[in-house]
Design a protein around this nucleic acid. Sequence first.
DNA 1: ACTGAAGATAATGTATACATGATTATCGCG
DNA 2: CGCGATAATCATGTATACATTATCTTCAGT
Lengths: 253, 253
Amino acid sequence: MKAAPEREVDRSVSQTVKAQLALRDQILAGSLRPGERISELQAVETTGASRTPVRMALVRLEEEGLLEAIPSGGFMVKAFSERDISDSIEVRGTLEGLAARFAAERGVSARELEPLKECSAAIDELLRQVPISVDAFSSYVTLNARFHAVLTELSRSAPLIRQIDRASALPFASPSGFVMAQSALPEAQQILIIGQEHHRVVIDAIENREGARAEAIMREHARLAVRNLRLALRNRTHLDLLPALALIKTATD
Amino acid sequence: MKAAPEREVDRSVSQTVKAQLALRDQILAGSLRPGERISELQAVETTGASRTPVRMALVRLEEEGLLEAIPSGGFMVKAFSERDISDSIEVRGTLEGLAARFAAERGVSARELEPLKECSAAIDELLRQVPISVDAFSSYVTLNARFHAVLTELSRSAPLIRQIDRASALPFASPSGFVMAQSALPEAQQILIIGQEHHRVVIDAIENREGARAEAIMREHARLAVRNLRLALRNRTHLDLLPALALIKTATD
DNA sequence: ACTGAAGATAATGTATACATGATTATCGCG
DNA sequence: CGCGATAATCATGTATACATTATCTTCAGT
């Protein structure tokens, strides 16, 4: 196990990745405010990495969509409108629809479909409890993310998978982005049940090689996330469960 | 006009951009072969920039999709199968379809639609000559690229525009990627006419707020590019007109 | 008091030196 | 003669020093 890694900062992971994670956390936590230029020196202090990896991390976060390049140099945190977020979700849904269609049209063996069915069965199990516990919500997030990842892989299209990953990089555009946010809503249970129905339908459609149906249901599935977004933004009670709340520009700003 | 910029390498553009352009050219020209690790020192020599900007350029080219990170460190040129390319085109077509639908559903004023109509009219003018000249093909490429860019903008959705730009970054996935490649084909004239018909239809659909129609026709429009790809790969006569031919892995490799 | 310019300050962009880790070549052994 | 291990070389990842450019402050003039 090598020498004791006491205060030694994990040598196993690169400084660039460390800086990227640290900066992303700061951005999502709102400690760096949208519109303001990100100071490299300040980032050096807070991340512990040197300027070179910090700079690298900034470029990667720009590509990720969290940052925006300033014409005169440097980067600033991007701000997102409600419309931006719902459009991002719809883009992801459209691409996932394409993935589902590819899977259906190109054919998927029973063995390949198995992981997806297992995911679905596990979610069914979760939803059996009648007032859904917070733990169950947490498990749902994991399983739902897995379902979407596996489905995407079934497209067997590297370029498409790549694009979906990039579209899901924004935390609020990710498939599980709003699940926790909806946990506080009274409609939570219903929404989860509807979402799971979508999962069932897309499996069925792929199994029967119904491309158009598979595509349509994944699009509709994303619209559910858009609806959650709207609900969460209106019911401002548990707004803190929203991912990247700090990046959302409200009309009052 | 400043002092004569004799042998002085454009100070106006950053070393990073210079390196990025130079490396991209080398990759597309095939001077760097897929699978082989790109040596930073070699890149430093060929681009004239230092290691830092070269490294920056490599990261950006990776995000662009031309390079792939090697687990042990560094980057290599990515190789693309025919399927990869057609899938990339279909992804772009799907996103452009979404853009057209957004434009149609959300509404576009007559004034905003004007540039699109102008593009279309200019292309009509080009296609009037009966054996289409090489110059006309070249003009077509420019106008077609403009048409797609303007159409994308009409979606008025920053996240979508961003994704489309990223999907079009790969040279063979770009809207005008295969126009020149098809110039050598006997079917060239017909294909251009059909493509232009698609342009006309999408304008009409947006004007009449027919979202589904606008979306469908843009998808079909991309399929035309896929067809061109297939044709060009079969008729190996003018294969050199294919963009990034060096990156396409054939069955013989 | 306000506008403009000029200087000072601080930031980014670039270059290079250093260290760690990977890759290859060579040598020894089976 | 082939395979494995060790050592040397080379490449990448990181840190830091330097220069250029943008931004802010201050001072002068109207």
